[in-house]
Design a binder for these strands. Structure first.
Lengths: 152, 152
DNA sequence: CTAAGTGCAAATTTTTTGCTTCTGC
DNA sequence: GCAGAAGCAAAAAATTTGCACTTAG
């Protein structure tokens, strides 16, 4: 992302803070800037190491707290699973998953269409694709029902 | 999964153990059986709690070690991200990821085809799908190159 | 000025490891 | 019998929290 684009996104963030009554602190801005400047999808520790060069007094827990805040505000996203702990599956058949963003429920999804998913050829520049894993993200029936009831 | 199917998979596993010179212990078999019997994609602690009812002396670390072993043998898979730590992304545009299974490298993938992917209607029974996230799993160019060199 | 946020240290949670004893083959 | 595995306890990672001080608005 080029510099002007980064600054645009930062300004957007400062604005969102104002609207949401959240403080646009130096730390938050630098952490966001760091994430905007890289393509590497870094983890908390990596972000900490890099931002520390500019704000030497920043602490790792501020990084964790800030990442969570930015995530809640929708400024950044967590890559891969949304869960904290590892979960396992003994289903040997090729399959995909439906994941409920609300309760974390995971369901198996079988679909020929998904299995036969065409890999975009542009991908060749990144590497070879062994298989395409699809995660359908939404809300499970239970959570939908609960939300509807709560709204009444 | 019905009982005969479970036993078939267990027998298959015992066989795989024999072939690979790995011991088919009571604990391993029960952990696998537990995972085969459920659709819930449980985490280590949940598996521990359930298996403990049958093997009261089993320890949580055995569960962790066994899950890793089963994963290495290909008998089970880890759901969602293959990484241990959370990783973040400030890329606000809708996109997907290419993940290298060897080094963990994550690359952004933009694709209209992926974005417009039709959600299979059978999915309606599970819940509502907000968006389809696709993870293209394979080996990045660097790892491919390294593997080729190593083979010589 | 004041509520929200930071930094520090200490706690929690999740997962791994060293070592001794036990067990499948 | 013996290498590989289990169990225990303790450590290591990863992440969160309580509290006093600081800062954005």
């Amino acid at each position: 992302m080029d510099n002007s684009e980064i600054e645009r996104r930062v300004a957007e963030f400062v604005d969102a803070c104002r609207r949401q009554g959240v403080k646009a602190t130096h730390q938050r801005i630098e952490i966001l800037r760091e994430l905007l400047a890289t393509q590497e999808h870094p983890d908390a520790e990596t972000i900490y190491d890099r931002v520390r060069q500019r704000i030497p007094t920043i602490s790792l827990d501020t990084v964790y707290r800030t990442l969570r805040t930015l995530e809640d505000m929708g400024a950044i996203t967590r890559v891969g699973s949304m869960q904290d702990r590892a979960r396992f599956d003994a289903n040997a058949d090729r399959h995909h998953h439906f994941v409920c963003c609300e309760c974390g429920m995971i369901g198996d999804v079988y679909s020929d269409v998904l299995d036969r998913f065409p890999v975009p050829r542009e991908l060749a520049e990144m590497g070879s694709v062994d298989w395409v894993y699809v995660e359908l993200r939404g809300r499970c029936q239970k959570c939908q029902a609960r939300a509807k009831k709560g709204k009444t």
